[in-house]
Computed example of a mutant assay.
Amino acid sequence: MNEQWGPSQIRPPRRPRSHQLGDARKEGEKEGKGRRMVNTPTFHAVARQDGAYWAVHITDLPDGCVGVTQGRTWIEARRMASDVVSALLDVPEESFKVELRPEDPELADLVNEAEKTREEADKAAKKAAEALATAARILTEKVTVRDAGAILGVSHQYVAKLAPKSG
């Protein structure tokens, strides 16, 4: 379904009477280490350029809700999409996330690939930090902190922070 819509067709959001996000919040709650963790509901939206505006369509709202808005910039479009979801569902903006993607499949693929690569880089950086800390702890048992820093290519102060002496 590739319907055409633009700024001239954007209407103020209608507020449904019965739908509340509260049920989704209750289902998403999980217990963590000494604290309660909540999975934040995510609403997906697509945006396409329409003249000087980004026209936004929120795709996964409950039945009976139509979420469309616009913004001059991507940031404004994302903020407006959050405003629409908040108004339609009568919930605070902090209780959900809006994931905004370009409607153009090529652009969306580029954004997805960039995010995937960034996540992989974050995981690799975390793994590297753990390996560095392990190496620092083992090396400082056998050589000086200064030598461990030189071997690992980091400052001796950083090695001391990674492998503090006990005692």
Results as ranks from 00 to 15, higher is better:
residue 2 N to P: 13
residue 3 E to M: 15
residue 4 Q to G: 15
residue 5 W to N: 12
residue 6 G to A: 15
residue 10 I to H: 08
residue 11 R to K: 13
residue 12 P to H: 11
residue 12 P to G: 00
residue 14 R to W: 06
residue 15 R to W: 05
residue 16 P to K: 04
residue 17 R to L: 11
residue 18 S to C: 04
residue 18 S to W: 04
residue 19 H to A: 08
residue 20 Q to V: 10
residue 24 A to S: 07
residue 25 R to D: 09
residue 28 G to D: 11
residue 28 G to T: 11
residue 29 E to C: 03
residue 30 K to Y: 05
residue 34 G to L: 05
residue 35 R to A: 10
residue 38 V to Y: 10
residue 39 N to R: 15
residue 43 F to N: 02
residue 45 A to N: 03
residue 45 A to Q: 02
residue 46 V to R: 05
residue 48 R to D: 13
residue 50 D to Q: 14
residue 50 D to S: 12
residue 51 G to Y: 12
residue 52 A to M: 11
residue 52 A to Y: 05
residue 53 Y to D: 03
residue 56 V to W: 07
residue 56 V to L: 01
residue 56 V to H: 02
residue 57 H to A: 14
residue 58 I to R: 09
residue 61 L to F: 02
residue 63 D to E: 11
residue 63 D to V: 12
residue 65 C to Y: 00
residue 69 T to N: 01
residue 70 Q to E: 06
residue 71 G to V: 04
residue 73 T to S: 02
residue 73 T to F: 08
residue 77 A to S: 00
residue 80 M to T: 04
residue 82 S to V: 02
residue 83 D to E: 07
residue 84 V to M: 00
residue 84 V to Q: 00
residue 86 S to P: 04
residue 87 A to S: 03
residue 89 L to S: 06
residue 90 D to V: 07
residue 91 V to M: 01
residue 92 P to E: 15
residue 93 E to F: 12
residue 94 E to A: 02
residue 94 E to K: 06
residue 95 S to E: 15
residue 97 K to N: 09
residue 97 K to Q: 09
residue 101 R to G: 07
residue 102 P to F: 00
residue 103 E to Q: 08
residue 104 D to M: 08
residue 104 D to N: 12
residue 106 E to P: 11
residue 107 L to I: 05
residue 107 L to D: 11
residue 108 A to V: 01
residue 109 D to M: 06
residue 111 V to F: 09
residue 112 N to I: 13
residue 122 D to T: 12
residue 123 K to S: 05
residue 123 K to R: 04
residue 125 A to C: 00
residue 126 K to P: 02
residue 128 A to F: 03
residue 128 A to R: 13
residue 130 E to T: 13
residue 131 A to F: 09
residue 133 A to G: 15
residue 134 T to E: 13
residue 136 A to P: 00
residue 137 R to E: 09
residue 137 R to K: 10
residue 140 T to V: 12
residue 141 E to M: 00
residue 142 K to T: 13
residue 142 K to E: 15
residue 143 V to L: 09
residue 146 R to T: 06
residue 146 R to Q: 08
residue 147 D to Q: 14
residue 147 D to S: 04
residue 148 A to D: 00
residue 150 A to W: 07
residue 153 G to D: 01
residue 154 V to C: 02
residue 154 V to S: 00
residue 155 S to T: 04
residue 156 H to P: 11
residue 159 V to C: 05
residue 159 V to L: 08
residue 160 A to I: 03
residue 160 A to C: 10
residue 160 A to N: 03
residue 162 L to R: 09
residue 162 L to Y: 04
residue 163 A to M: 02
residue 163 A to Q: 00
residue 165 K to D: 07
residue 166 S to R: 13
